[in-house]
Design a protein around this nucleic acid. Structure first.
Lengths: 222, 222
DNA sequence: TCCAACATGTAACCGGTTACATGATTCA
DNA sequence: TGAATCATGTAACCGGTTACATGTTGGA
């Protein structure tokens, strides 16, 4: 889990309440690590009981009391260790690719509609991303964390680049599908289905041997 | 959830047992939708109780009995409807970007090590992806589902393209970080931390207004 | 002899989301 | 008047992973 570590990261910048941290998440890391208040509060409590953060109640007259958290030395140590450990990628879960994978079961125009919707979404993300990227360094300057600007920009770049390449792929997929033979759609694949069980199993095993080295086995991740 | 729909998708190709489906997942969609047996079995049971699949027990003398599943008309209808519905992207959760975001808290060489590790992993994925892509159409032909080859290839392309662009980004990030001023690292940001609470909150709100339109709000997903 | 493959499952756990609860203040 | 902001949380649920359980057969 890196929510706890992300919280430590922000607390390393200074004191914060849970409510404030939610705001900070939303304007900075939400595109690659979202967090809900209902998860932040218990996580802070857990961090406290682990001795990685301290908490002070700040009594307020007109508003609800605030619980102000700060990072401890142990917390800082834990953060640095985590930051310096290589990160495994999370399991990819991409429903769109599942849909595309079974594209032959679907009328051509339905599949194309699904892909066009994705392309539109991505165009929106790309446009926003370009705007955001320009805003970031200024933001860092305003906030008094100028040196951090580089890193924040790089995370924006990551999203932008990803969106751009995803868009390129989508557009190319659309072109290839448009060009594809109509017979490829709405098909009811017969050969494999009517094979007897043993034959199918044999084929699967043969395939497994052939494809195995090409499969990107998604190993453990934190 | 699309595990159920992925199962329906494969059952639409023909009869399968849970055990077989696991194999099929591993050699085809595992890179974008992994599934464990412990999840497949209950899902099939659920699909059955929803009337989307039928089950027949095949008694075997020398081996454990097999439960052979087949898709029903209702199941086929459900599958087609799901396939034709635009897919929202899953929430992105990228620990590496979290680490990079807090890169200024870390010694330069530690951060670079983390990124080099990622770059190496990606180079491996790209190499495998290229091999795999070439194997796919052949696989489709062997299995008797030649028309499906196009779609399978496109899903391989997606992974390959994504890996390639992620690698490009990583390499560029490494270069920028190598070129960065040493003062940007191991820093203990003081200004923001020593501000009083009210001032910080004000800044956060200002930022929210400025950055909001650039933030890609990750909405609901299925 | 020991491990892999075949074949099915259950149970505990885990991180995360959604919904619900409370209650004051401020602004449109 | 009614919504948004401040500020904290709990509880139910959900999809997925890990670990555990069982028992046979065939090959290294």
């Amino acid at each position: 889990m890196s929510l706890k570590h992300a919280l430590l990261g922000f607390l390393n910048y200074g004191l914060h309440t849970g409510y404030e941290l939610k705001k900070v998440f939303d304007i900075s890391v939400a595109h690659f690590w979202n967090a809900e208040l209902s998860q932040i509060y218990p996580s802070l409590k857990a961090l406290e009981s682990e001795g990685l953060v301290d908490m002070n109640v700040e009594v307020q007259a007109d508003r609800p009391n605030r619980k102000v958290y700060s990072i401890t030395d142990d917390g800082r140590r834990e953060l640095l260790e985590w930051l310096g450990t290589p990160a495994e990628s999370d399991q990819v879960r991409e429903p769109l690719l599942v849909k595309l994978f079974f594209g032959s079961s679907l009328p051509k125009r339905d599949l194309l509609a699904v892909l066009h919707k994705r392309a539109d979404d991505l165009r929106g993300t790309v446009a926003k991303g370009q705007h955001g990227r320009e805003a970031v360094r200024g933001v860092a300057r305003v906030i008094g964390l100028e040196r951090e600007g580089l890193f924040w920009e790089l995370t924006m770049d990551a999203e932008l680049k990803h969106s751009e390449s995803a868009l390129e792929w989508t557009e190319q997929a659309i072109r290839q599908i448009e060009a594809a033979d109509d017979e490829a759609f709405n098909s009811h694949p017969a050969d494999f289905a009517t094979m007897d069980t043993k034959a199918r199993v044999e084929i699967l095993d043969k395939l497994k041997g052939a494809v195995a080295p090409a499969i990107h086995t998604p190993d453990q991740f934190e």
